[in-house]
Amino acid sequence: GLEHMADEEKLPPGWEKRMSRSSGRVYYFNHITNASQWERPSG
């Protein structure tokens, strides 16, 4: 619920959580730099 939404908002600017269609794993994508990574971004 609300706790999940608050957790999402802690991601650094530009980052969003996405799911890989090929593997079904969650990864993180930065739409500003077009960077993507499996680890949760910090800072």
Results as ranks from 00 to 15, higher is better:
G1W: 11
G1T: 11
G1F: 12
L2P: 12
L2K: 12
L2G: 14
E3Y: 03
E3M: 08
E3G: 11
H4L: 11
M5L: 11
M5N: 13
A6T: 11
A6G: 09
D7H: 09
D7C: 15
E8T: 09
E8M: 07
E8P: 09
E9V: 06
E9D: 12
E9M: 08
E9Y: 08
E9L: 07
E9N: 08
K10A: 15
K10N: 14
K10R: 12
K10C: 15
K10P: 15
K10M: 11
K10W: 14
L11W: 02
L11M: 05
P12S: 02
P12N: 01
P12A: 03
P12H: 02
P13D: 08
P13H: 09
P13G: 05
P13E: 09
P13Y: 13
P13K: 06
P13R: 07
G14P: 10
G14S: 03
G14D: 04
G14M: 03
G14K: 01
G14Q: 04
E16P: 00
E16N: 04
E16D: 03
E16M: 06
K17S: 05
K17F: 04
K17T: 06
K17I: 09
R18T: 03
R18Q: 03
R18K: 08
M19F: 15
M19A: 06
M19H: 10
M19I: 15
R21C: 15
R21G: 11
R21Q: 14
R21P: 15
R21A: 15
S22K: 15
S22D: 10
S22Y: 11
S22V: 14
S22L: 12
S23I: 05
S23F: 09
S23Q: 09
G24Q: 07
G24H: 07
G24N: 08
G24I: 03
G24K: 08
G24E: 04
G24C: 13
R25A: 05
R25M: 06
V26F: 11
V26G: 02
V26L: 06
V26Y: 11
V26D: 03
Y27C: 09
Y27R: 01
Y27T: 01
Y27S: 02
Y27H: 02
Y28E: 00
Y28R: 00
Y28M: 00
Y28I: 00
Y28T: 00
F29G: 01
F29K: 03
N30Q: 02
N30C: 03
N30R: 01
N30S: 05
N30Y: 04
H31D: 03
H31L: 14
H31Q: 09
H31S: 13
I32Y: 10
I32E: 08
I32N: 08
I32A: 07
I32T: 07
I32S: 06
I32F: 13
I32G: 04
T33L: 06
T33K: 04
T33G: 02
N34H: 15
N34D: 04
N34Q: 14
A35M: 14
A35G: 05
A35N: 07
S36G: 05
S36E: 06
Q37N: 02
Q37K: 03
Q37V: 04
Q37I: 04
Q37P: 00
W38E: 05
W38T: 05
W38A: 05
W38N: 04
W38P: 04
W38F: 08
E39L: 07
E39N: 08
R40P: 07
R40W: 07
P41H: 00
P41A: 02
P41R: 01
S42F: 10
S42I: 11
S42P: 08
G43Y: 11
